[in-house]
C-alpha cells in the first residue's frame, strides 16, 4: 500500500468547521507517483445535501471523491497531502484504518459492479460483513425499496445480480451501499454508463435519498448537477506544466454556480456547455 503523508492534526477550536459539515476536505496535493493529479482544493460537504463535482474530463473530480474514503490507497504511487476531516477526525491520520473509513462511507461506482451472487446476497453483503444480528430479510427489503428496485426484483431475489439490466444493476449497487446505513454515500458518475431513462430514475432516487444521507456526486453531466445538486464544486485542469493538474475553481450553491458564476473559467465552461 502506498505511503501516505498526512500531518497528524488535532482539531482545535480555531480550526473548527462550520456546523453541518460532515466532511471537510482540504487538499494540498494528490500525487500519483511524481505526477500531481490535484492541488489546492477545499470542499466542505454538508449534511443532508447533494454536493456535485463537475468539470472537464481529467480535472481530478473522481480522484477527489475517491480520496474521501481512501479508495485511492489501492492505487500504486498514490500520495495525499492535506486533510480530510470526517466529523472531528482526520481520515488520513496515521492510526486510521482505511477499511473502517470505507465502512462508514458507501460508494457507488461509474460502472455498475454487482457481485456475481444473488440479488439478496448482494444487498446483504455489507450487513453480513458487519455481522448484523437483526432481521436480514427486512433490511434487504428496506434497502431495495429505498433504491426503488424492490417491485422489480421482489420475485427473483435468488437470481444473480449480474442478470439485471444496467440501470437495475446500478440501483442494486445503490441498495447495497445504503443497506448498512452509512453516513455518507459517494457516487462516482453513477449514471454515465446508463441510458436516459435509467439515468432519470437514478436522479430521482438521489433526491429521495438525500433526506437521509449526505451525498457526494461526481458527474460529467452539467444538467444532472443542476437538477439534483444543492452545492457544486467546479474543477478545472491546469496543463501549464508537463502534467495535468486539477484544482478547484469555484465552490458554492448550485444555483449560484450556474447562474452567477464568480470566476471567469466557470463562466466560460458553463456557457460552453449550454450553448
Amino acid at each position: 500500500m502506498s505511503a501516505i503523508r498526512a500531518e497528524k492534526t488535532r482539531i482545535t477550536a480555531a480550526d473548527a468547521t462550520p456546523p453541518g459539515v460532515v466532511i471537510d476536505c482540504r487538499i494540498d496535493k494528490i500525487y500519483y507517483g511524481d505526477f500531481v493529479a490535484v492541488r489546492d482544493s477545499h470542499i466542505p460537504i454538508e449534511k443532508g445535501k447533494i454536493t456535485s463535482f463537475i468539470g472537464p474530463s481529467g480535472c481530478g473530480k473522481s480522484t477527489v471523491v475517491r480520496c474521501l474514503n481512501r479508495m485511492n490507497d489501492l492505487i500504486k504511487g498514490f500520495r495525499f497531502e492535506g486533510r480530510v476531516r470526517f466529523y472531528d477526525q482526520d481520515v488520513y491520520a496515521p492510526d486510521v484504518d482505511p477499511v473502517i473509513v470505507r465502512r462508514h462511507m458507501g460508494m457507488v461506482f461509474q460502472q455498475p459492479n454487482p457481485f456475481s451472487m444473488s440479488i439478496f446476497d448482494n444487498v446483504a453483503f455489507g450487513l453480513r460483513l458487519n455481522r448484523y444480528k437483526g432481521n436480514l430479510a427486512e433490511r434487504v427489503e428496506h434497502a431495495l425499496r429505498r433504491a426503488a428496485l424492490w417491485d422489480e426484483v421482489k420475485d427473483k431475489l435468488k437470481t444473480n445480480g449480474l442478470s439485471l439490466s444496467g440501470g437495475q444493476q446500478q440501483r442494486l449497487c445503490i441498495a447495497r451501499a445504503i443497506a448498512t446505513e452509512p453516513m455518507v454515500v459517494l457516487m462516482d458518475e453513477p449514471a454515465s454508463a446508463l441510458d436516459p431513462i435509467a439515468t432519470r430514475k437514478i436522479e430521482e432516487l438521489m433526491v429521495e435519498l438525500k433526506q437521509k444521507y449526505t451525498i457526494a456526486l461526481v458527474t460529467h453531466n452539467m444538467q444532472q448537477a443542476l437538477r439534483v445538486a444543492d452545492k457544486t464544486a467546479f474543477f478545472s485542469v491546469d496543463i501549464s506544466q508537463d502534467g495535468r493538474t486539477g484544482y478547484l475553481v469555484e465552490f458554492g450553491d448550485t444555483r449560484q454556480i450556474f447562474e452567477d458564476p464568480k470566476e471567469q473559467l466557470t463562466q466560460e465552461y458553463i456557457r460552453g456547455e449550454f450553448s
Binding site: 462508514h104 455489507g126 458487519n130 455481522r131 448498512t180 446505513e181 452509512p182 453516513m183 437521509k212
Partner: peptide, 19 residues
C-alpha cells in the same frame, strides 16, 4: 478505532471489522 461510532446515525450498522 471505534472513534467514528459516536456520529453514526442511530440505526447505523457499520462498525469496524472485529478482532
Amino acid at each position: 478505532m471505534k472513534r467514528f461510532e459516536q456520529f453514526s446515525a442511530s440505526d447505523a450498522i457499520s462498525g469496524p471489522p472485529s478482532k
